[in-house]
Computed example of a mutant assay.
Amino acid sequence: MKFHAALFDFDGTLTPSLPLWVRAYQIALQTFGIEASDDEVLRHCFFRDCADVAVIYGSFTGPELEVQLDIGLQAAFLQAELFPLARDVVAHCRDHGLHTALVTSSPRGLVIGVLQRLGILESFDFVICGGDVSNYKPHPEPVTTALAALKCEPARAMMIGDSHVDILAGKAAGTRTALYLPDDHRRFHNVERLHATGPDHIFADHDELPALLQLPELIR
């Protein structure tokens, strides 16, 4: 079946930003007098709501952490860059007639600023960010909202991401799914949980994506 749309996650999929999230949490926790190592942040903060993190530490509230985390993200993401082939892959999709969307739970103010700075915002037909919907991934709402905006049937779209929530959201919405899993992501993710989501494809390099999307090979 010919694909009509490619839906991309942002963090860890188009930009190697997972270390930046670690740094943002460290900046936020420092405001509460907590010096957290990378491993501690990964154990206590990653893939958790701020309210849950607040319960673990007991020295601040979820809303207080949200405020400081946003400040930390704005500082850390000044260093955000794209993966080497990310720009080319998104452009390749557009050049061959696919609609493109960015489907992320990261804050809109943060994401749009980074996309503009990196000169890739105009490569997307639609962008949906945290706060634009009532339910975040793994709920299908962000994906179904993007599909509606692109006027694309779920079966003709591929949800591409690096996290279990990306794959679960895509599957719940009825799209095909592709999990980005390079070796250096293994310290950020529970690999068994990733495989348990049952992605249709797993890839380790962006130059593999055109074939998964039934497009011609990407010419570097």
Rank of each mutant, 00 (worst) to 15 (best):
I160V: 15
G161H: 09
A172L: 03
V143M: 04
E153Q: 12
A157Y: 01
M159D: 13
K151P: 00
P154N: 12
A155W: 11
C152L: 09
P138E: 13
V165K: 14
V165T: 12
V165E: 08
A146P: 01
N135A: 15
A169Q: 06
S163M: 00
E153D: 11
E141F: 09
A155S: 15
A155P: 06
A148T: 15
C152S: 14
M158H: 13
N135I: 03
T175E: 04
D166Q: 03
T144Y: 03
L168Q: 14
C152H: 05
T175K: 06
Y136K: 13
D132L: 06
D132Y: 08
P154W: 06
A157E: 04
G131P: 08
D162V: 10
A149I: 11
G130L: 13
V165C: 04
S134M: 10
A172D: 03
R156G: 02
L147A: 05
C152G: 02
G130C: 12
Y136D: 13
P154Q: 10
G170K: 00
D166M: 00
K151L: 06
G170E: 02
D166P: 00
M158A: 15
T145H: 14
L147E: 05
G130N: 12
V133H: 01
G174T: 01
E141H: 06
E153G: 01
E141W: 11
A149F: 08
P140V: 12
A169K: 05
H139I: 05
G130K: 15
P138D: 15
K137E: 07
H164Q: 15
N135K: 15
P154I: 07
M159S: 12
G170D: 04
G174A: 00
